[in-house]
Design a binder for these strands. Structure first.
Length: 402
RNA sequence: GGGCGUGUACCCAAGUGGCCAACGGGGUCAGACUGUAAAUCUGAUGGCUUAUGCCUUCGAAGGUUCGAAUCCUUCCACGCCCA
């Protein structure tokens, strides 16, 4: 068993702030003494089906706690998702229907299982509808009376929206309170979150104190930058890598990691791996490209398998270094278009490479399209698909079948 | 409830009767260059049976006009101020 100091040191790799640090230390010490595991809470809203590498950062910290014998308490925010977390937003989130939320929630536990231990001793999964569905208006009023409007407007994102005249709906003020109430209901000792969650997490600590329970310690992790190289990785920005993304292929992890800006390498290594940073920094210095390949393989090995990592690398080399078509690509039958010959733009649409005939036509004119490796610039070209035919538009491939 | 504003394509934003499928920027896609990228340069960015043709689009519905994103009416939504 690691000493408390070693544990805190191990956490520091991925923690931006621990509030308050002394409190966390005290909790760890008490847990060791009494043999009672700490309850490490992490909330996730099922607002989209994918768990991203951005979520993986706090999840890895939760995993560290699990490895030390503590218990993860995963809150699936089926009720909070109906409100929509306003954190970092500059407008109201769209509200999801109950069905969408339930469907998304179902896949979460499975995805999270790639990172966390999932046996009953190490993981407790709760839906916050468990307690919110039972509340009546009086309960809600009691909850809302805990915080003032001024306290809410202290939050950077609310303040910005208020001062720039972007509307804030009243239900959005409830979000931090609801998240905090989750902590009260689950007796969290520690709450994890991204650094944009600090406000919400601290509300939990306050509400616990108000309920005369020990206040949770709060650990926030740095935010992982998304594939655009600028903004926080998030589902709504579509700049994310999902933990269940395929290893290779156009939307695969390998390609997404390779197309990250070089400058992100250090933070990705720090936040997503446990490799010693000394050698990693040297490698990044020496060859950012090789560092990226190594990272891609490391992450794919973690989330898929070592074989998948090797295959993904091989595919990538084939496609982008040697500029040959990959082995695996999406396949589409042409039958439903009726008998040939077919116009090329229509085939591009059928293969999902273009959104409309017009777009297909433009891309052909731009020289972006090739058939079986032959570049085509004649947008009126017609062809009959009597054997498997490989279409390429930009870096995307598709195979057409008769 | 009253007053003043605002509503344009994925986002921001010009346009205030015909030259508007609608300037510009961002984003996105593609081409060149590369290390896969980033940066840079270039092109594209409503749909259709590719047509100097048709259809749909400037919050919604009506109306005026030969002709409307632009004018009028009503409605809806949002912001600010007053109550």
């Amino acid at each position: 068993m690691m000493s408390i100091d070693d544990q805190l040191a191990a956490l520091s790799r991925r923690t931006e702030r621990i509030v308050p640090e002394a409190d966390l230390r005290a909790k760890l010490e008490r847990s060791t003494k009494t043999g009672t595991p700490l309850r490490i809470k992490l909330g996730m809203d099922p607002t989209a089906p994918d768990v991203t590498l951005g979520h993986a950062v706090p999840l890895r910290v939760v995993r560290q706690f699990q490895d030390w014998g503590h218990k993860a308490v995963l809150i699936i925010g089926d009720y909070t998702a109906r409100v929509g977390d306003p954190s970092g937003r500059n407008k109201t989130r769209p509200q999801l229907s109950g069905e969408e939320i339930d469907q998304n929630a179902r896949t979460y536990v499975e995805q999270v299982g790639k990172i966390l231990l999932t046996d009953a001793a190490h993981l407790e999964t709760r839906f916050n509808g468990e307690w919110f569905a039972k509340m009546n208006l009086l309960d809600v009023l009691r909850l809302t009376s805990k915080k003032s409007v001024a306290q809410m407007l202290e939050r950077e994102d609310f303040k910005n929206r208020y001062t720039t005249g972007v509307d804030i709906r009243i239900h959005e003020f409830l979000y931090p309170l609801m998240q905090g109430w989750d902590s009260v209901m689950t007796d969290a000792d520690v709450e994890m979150g991204g650094s944009d969650q600090l406000f919400n997490n601290l509300v939990g600590r306050d509400l616990q104190a108000d309920a005369e329970k020990p206040g949770q310690a709060v650990i926030v992790t740095p935010l992982l930058v998304g594939t655009d190289g600028v903004k926080k990785m998030s589902k709504s920005q579509k700049n994310y890598i999902g933990v269940t993304d395929p290893a290779s292929g156009p939307s695969g992890m390998f390609g997404k990691i390779m197309s990250l800006p070089d400058v992100l390498m250090e933070s990705y290594y720090t936040l997503l791996t446990d490799l010693p940073m000394g050698p990693v920094k040297e490698q990044i210095q020496r060859s950012p490209r090789d560092a990226k390949i190594a990272l891609a393989k490391h992450l794919i090995t973690w989330l898929h398998t070592a074989e998948a990592a090797n295959t993904a690398e091989a595919d990538f080399v084939t496609q982008f270094v040697k500029h040959e078509a990959p082995q695996e690509m999406p396949e589409f039958g042409v039958g439903e278009l009726g008998p040939g010959p077919h116009k090329l733009p229509a085939l591009l649409v059928r293969a999902g490479l273009a959104a409309s005939n017009g777009e297909g036509t433009r891309k052909i004119k731009e020289g972006a399209v090739s058939i079986d490796g032959e570049k085509v610039t004649d947008f009126q070209k017609c062809l009959t698909i009597d054997k498997a035919t490989v279409l390429k538009l930009g870096r995307k491939y598709a195979r057409l079948l008769p």
